[in-house]
């Protein structure tokens, strides 16, 4: 091994000493999220009418390779509809422990109702707290179940540890 070789290697090390570090001081610092990052799902609404986009078709559940999604549908009350059309999801659940965040559900959805967002802080203590229902995923709900519990306990707003980027599919989602 020549001296030159060692010098070359040390040179690489040395050059990195002066670069900006990649490490983020999470949670003090927010994490940058790429536009196409796949985190916790959001159930979207039509921005103009406020009606849910999900029609309870269960295609996401059929596409899910991890069997993480359970959907039960019901008929809309024509006078007070939940979604556009005849049918809506009366139960919509994703088991976040089973989910492998592959995004197949999003691809399968004919209405663009389910979109994988940027939230990733899903840790929790009990199994049942990983089953997310409509109330946990409808657009407007911010944070994981644990984050929302903590925020409520402390009497403050949910604070996410991420710096989102723009993704047009996440219509109406505001981090």
């Amino acid at each position: 091994m020549s001296v030159l070789g060692i010098a070359k290697g040390m040179g690489v090390t040395l050059s990195h000493l002066f670069k900006k570090p990649v490490t983020v001081q999470y949670p003090e610092e927010k994490v940058d999220v790429q536009a196409r990052f796949r985190g916790r799902h959001h159930l979207l609404r039509h921005p103009d009418t406020g009606l849910e986009k999900c029609i309870g078709c269960s295609l996401c559940a059929a596409a899910c390779p991890a069997y993480a999604i359970y959907v039960e549908a019901a008929e809309n009350d024509p006078d007070d509809p939940t979604s556009a059309g005849e049918r809506y999801a009366s139960i919509y659940e994703i088991n976040m422990l089973r989910c492998i965040f592959c995004g197949f559900c999003e691809e399968a959805c004919p209405t663009g109702a389910i979109v994988l967002g940027h939230e990733f802080e899903l840790a929790d203590f009990r199994y049942e707290n990983f089953v997310y229902g409509k109330d946990d995923m409808l657009v407007g709900v911010k944070g994981s179940k644990w984050q929302r519990r903590e925020a409520e306990r402390a009497g403050r707003d949910v604070e996410l540890g991420l710096a989102p980027s723009h993704r047009p599919e996440l219509e109406g989602v505001d981090y």
Binding site: S58, E72, A73, E86, R87
Partner: peptide
């Protein structure tokens, strides 16, 4: 069975 489930379910 209106809207109760999809056929493959």
């Amino acid at each position: 069975s209106r809207f109760r489930g999809r056929n493959w379910e």
